[in-house]
Design a protein around this nucleic acid. Sequence first.
DNA 1: GTAAGCCGCAACCAGTTAGTTGCGTTTTCG
DNA 2: CGAAAACGCAACTAACTGGTTGCGGCTTAC
Lengths: 120, 120
Amino acid sequence: MPGLNEVFGALADPTRREVMLSLAERPGLTASHLAGELPITRQAVAKHLGALSTAGLVTARREGRETRYTLTPAPLVDAMQWMTDVGAEWDERLERLRRRTSTSTALGGEGEGAGRREGA
Amino acid sequence: MPGLNEVFGALADPTRREVMLSLAERPGLTASHLAGELPITRQAVAKHLGALSTAGLVTARREGRETRYTLTPAPLVDAMQWMTDVGAEWDERLERLRRRTSTSTALGGEGEGAGRREGA
DNA sequence: GTAAGCCGCAACCAGTTAGTTGCGTTTTCG
DNA sequence: CGAAAACGCAACTAACTGGTTGCGGCTTAC
């Protein structure tokens, strides 16, 4: 169980997000191949893959002399859960305030669209 | 427009997430008050609030001699969008693979439950 | 067997980060 | 006015991070 620290931390780096996208559309890529389409060395990619692996977002599978990586997006669910939780609590609080003070929604104002855009 | 780096980076720290939760249920807290319920100094909290502000997740409002902070969860939408995007692409790719190779799903295996838990 | 790939580990470096302390400024209160 | 409360800014430290290079160990191919 990786925990949110590792997941959000892994997602915070643009190179790591790039790697995730590459692995999403082409599963089974190797560190060397990924390094081929990135402006960094293989070892740097390997470190990023290590971080992603620690976060549980990627799985390594040795195959002969090369190591193939596959995306495992399960931990993203926990991350999204946390975000919707804090967002929900916020919306709830806002709703409560708005209901009580039908006028002078000081918090509403221009921040209206902040809570949650319709639907999704 | 803060960008995903700042948002995910802000979310990667447990203290910052704690602060966000506190602000979600009690909007308008000050840095000093937050420091009161955390094992760190006021200045450390102020730095965290600065990071959250840079990420667009929090807004400061000066009120006399104190500064009140309020949650602005809008950037979370972008973050969730990115996650659902990469998840969707992954699911799509997996689906395509599974359809083409009805047998010998080498990639399926034990990673079956990774894509997306039922329903949501 | 030897050479070529691919990989992992370790050392090292520069920049960032989380945290501290210290100090000066503004606002409120007696 | 003078003291207290809350703040912001700056300097400093320790630890982490993203990146590099160098090297040695397997695996494949000749």
